[in-house]
Each structure stands twice: as C-alpha cells, then as structure tokens.
Lab assay of single mutants.
Amino acid sequence: VGDQVLEIVPSNEEQIKNLLQLEAQEHLQLDFWKSPTTPGETAHVRVPFVNVQAVKVFLESQGIAYSIMIED
C-alpha cells in the first residue's frame, strides 16, 4: 500500500476553509492537484501513505465527502 489520491467534495464554504487549512499543514506533505474553490466541486489531493489515515479521520470528523481516486 502506498500513497493515495483522494477525490474530495466539499459541500459548503466552511468545508472549503477546512480543506485550505489542511493544505497549509506542511508536515502532512499533501499535494493538491486541484484545490477546493467552490462547494460541490471536486478537489484532488495526493496523500503520502504515512498520512492517509490522519487525513481520512480529519475529513470524516468534518463531514467532508471523499473517495479514493487512485490507490498506489
């Protein structure tokens, strides 16, 4: 199991704000291929294997929908 690319769908401005804060966490080494800008629009982010669980827990705790787009 390696890195994953998640497709994330924020449903409101609050969730977009939370994702932008997540993007700013440099220690997570997230690679946003497509940043969140509009509710209902997908964002794509590559998550290093060591941080996959932490990111998924965060998304679930914020009620942000996501799916695994690419499993490496």
Rank of each mutant, 00 (worst) to 15 (best):
T37D: 05
D31Q: 15
P48K: 07
H27Y: 11
D72R: 07
L28V: 04
L22A: 04
I68Y: 05
K17M: 09
P39W: 03
W33P: 04
M69T: 06
V45I: 10
F49G: 14
V52G: 03
A43M: 13
I8K: 01
N51T: 05
A43P: 01
I70R: 05
T37E: 06
Q15R: 00
T42M: 06
L30Y: 02
V47N: 01
V9Y: 15
L20E: 05
N12Q: 02
L20H: 06
Q21Y: 14
I68G: 03
P48H: 05
A24L: 11
E14A: 09
D31R: 12
V55T: 03
R46E: 03
I16Y: 05
L22C: 04
P10C: 12
E7A: 14
S11A: 13
N12W: 02
Q15A: 04
S67K: 13
R46S: 08
G2D: 07
I8A: 02
E41D: 08
A24Y: 09
Q25G: 05
L30R: 01
E71L: 06
I70S: 13
Q4P: 07
L22H: 03
Q29S: 10
Q29W: 06
Q25R: 08
V50M: 12
I68S: 04
T38L: 10
T42I: 13
E71A: 11
T37R: 07
Q15G: 03
L59S: 00
R46F: 11
V47Y: 01
V52I: 13
Q53H: 12
F32D: 02
N12F: 02
W33M: 14
E13C: 13
P10G: 03
T38N: 07
P36K: 02
V52L: 14
T42R: 11
H44V: 15
E14Q: 08
I68T: 07
G63H: 06
S11N: 09
V1T: 12
F49A: 15
E7K: 10
L6D: 00
H44L: 15
V5H: 08
E7L: 15
V50S: 11
S11H: 09
L59G: 00
E60F: 03
P39C: 04
A65D: 08
D31T: 13
V1I: 07
V52H: 04
V47C: 03
G63C: 05
H44P: 02
S61D: 08
I8F: 04
V55A: 02
A24I: 09
K17V: 07
E41T: 07
P10E: 01
L22N: 02
G2K: 05
P39K: 04
E26T: 14
G63P: 00
W33R: 09
W33S: 12
D3F: 14
P39I: 09
E71H: 07
E41A: 09
F58I: 08
Q21V: 11
S61H: 08
N18P: 02
E14Y: 07
H27L: 09
N18G: 12
N12R: 02
F58V: 04
L20D: 03
S35K: 14
P36M: 05
L28P: 04
S67E: 08
G2C: 15
K17N: 09
G63K: 06
T38P: 02
L20W: 09
V5W: 15
E7V: 14
D31H: 15
E13H: 12
P36Y: 02
I8V: 09
K34L: 07
E41K: 05
V45S: 02
Y66P: 00
L6A: 01
S67C: 12
K56I: 15
K56P: 00
S35G: 11
A54E: 11
E23I: 14
V1H: 15
V45Q: 01
Q21A: 13
L30S: 03
Y66L: 01
P48W: 03
E13N: 10
N51D: 05
V45T: 01
L20Y: 08
V1G: 13
E60Q: 06
I8W: 02
